[in-house]
């Protein structure tokens, strides 16, 4: 990016020189060149400063609600949804979450001391997490803690909270969805910060525990939900199933009885007697079971005298 700005400046520089050459005034040329040289040396900022009219809302007073969007970047419906979430979080947690929404291409003027904002507005009252959230650029988010809990929450934990929230946000593409994911994850991390504040030693290594517990509880919830659905389905369809089973059983018994009682007949044909036998002659098989090595398959072809002793 730095190279891009340098190249852009160089382009402006060369075009400016061209313009200067056209004027044919050496003094002016020198002045312009000097000015441009200074411009190249000075790093150009890609962010625009937040308009002064909105600065008081960001910096001059303690916010009256948890979501501060004086520029109306979110739109009213999204703003309401996120604000509801933050209110819900505040009701559920002992640490409030304040979010200042700033444009993704904006920045707070550097001469303003943001630490001063924290000490002035958040040193009293409930402990709070304050986030400067850049809409559409969650990676620029700035995370701060109110002075009352700064000591208790380690820097590593703070970084982890911010990183995981940014990761969650970046998984989405729409800026509004990014903010939603960011806030949800941050709320979860704040819960673990609370536990750290409560002195639970087991909660120190929060990441794996959080993941496993969340997954387990989510799986349990999903399972119970499925079970409930299945139960309702079973109750709904049980009469039909019972009827179907009953009919199948009756049909099975009926068919079984028919089969048992079935009588089979053979048509009668005239057969000429053979070998002097009045009733039958010379048909049918013989099998030997004298030796286990002689299988039935080997005896299939009945050969002359093969079974004589």
């Amino acid at each position: 990016m730095k190279w891009f700005w340098l190249a852009l400046a160089a382009g402006i520089h060369s075009s400016a020189i061209a313009q200067v050459e056209a004027t044919d005034t050496p003094v002016e040329t020198a002045q312009v060149e000097l000015a441009l040289t200074e411009k190249i040396v000075e790093e150009p900022s890609k962010f625009i400063k937040v308009s002064e009219e909105f600065l008081p809302a960001y910096l001059a007073e303690r916010p009256s609600q948890f979501l501060i969007d004086p520029q109306n970047l979110l739109g009213s419906s999204t703003f309401q949804e996120r604000l509801e979430f933050l209110n819900y979080h505040a009701g559920d947690s002992s640490i409030d979450l304040f979010v200042y929404v700033i444009g993704g291409d904006q920045q707070i003027p550097s001469e303003i001391d943001q630490q001063d904002r924290l000490s002035r507005f958040f040193s009293t009252g409930r402990p709070a997490v304050v986030v400067d959230y850049y809409l559409g650029a969650p990676q620029r988010s700035v995370f701060s803690l109110s002075p009352s809990i700064t000591e208790a929450i380690s820097v590593a934990e703070r970084n982890r909270a911010l990183e995981s929230s940014i990761m969650q946000a970046l998984a989405k593409t729409k800026p509004s969805e990014q903010l939603e994911s960011f806030l949800a994850q941050m709320s979860i991390r704040i819960y673990w910060m609370e536990r750290m504040l409560a002195g639970e030693a087991a909660a120190r290594d929060v990441r794996p525990v959080l993941t496993v517990e969340n997954r387990l509880s989510a799986a349990k919830l999903a399972k119970s939900e499925k079970l409930r659905r299945l139960q309702s389905l079973a109750i709904q369809f049980s009469p039909f199933v019972a009827l179907l089973v009953f009919i199948s059983l009756i049909a099975f018994i009926f068919l079984r009885r028919i089969k048992i009682r079935a009588r089979y007949h053979f048509p009668l044909f005239d057969v000429e007697p053979r070998l002097g036998g009045a009733n039958g002659a010379g048909v049918g098989a013989v099998i030997s079971f004298a030796n286990a090595t002689i299988s039935p398959a080997s005896q299939r072809d009945q050969v002359p005298d093969s079974l004589h002793r």
């Binding site: 048909v283 098989a285 013989v286 099998i287 079971f289």
Partner: peptide, 17 residues
């Protein structure tokens, strides 16, 4: 240790060895 099966003329057309 031998067994055999024979049948009369009625089944002659239907059964075989």
């Amino acid at each position: 240790k031998a067994a055999g099966m024979v049948f009369g003329y009625l089944l002659d057309p239907f059964l075989d060895e």
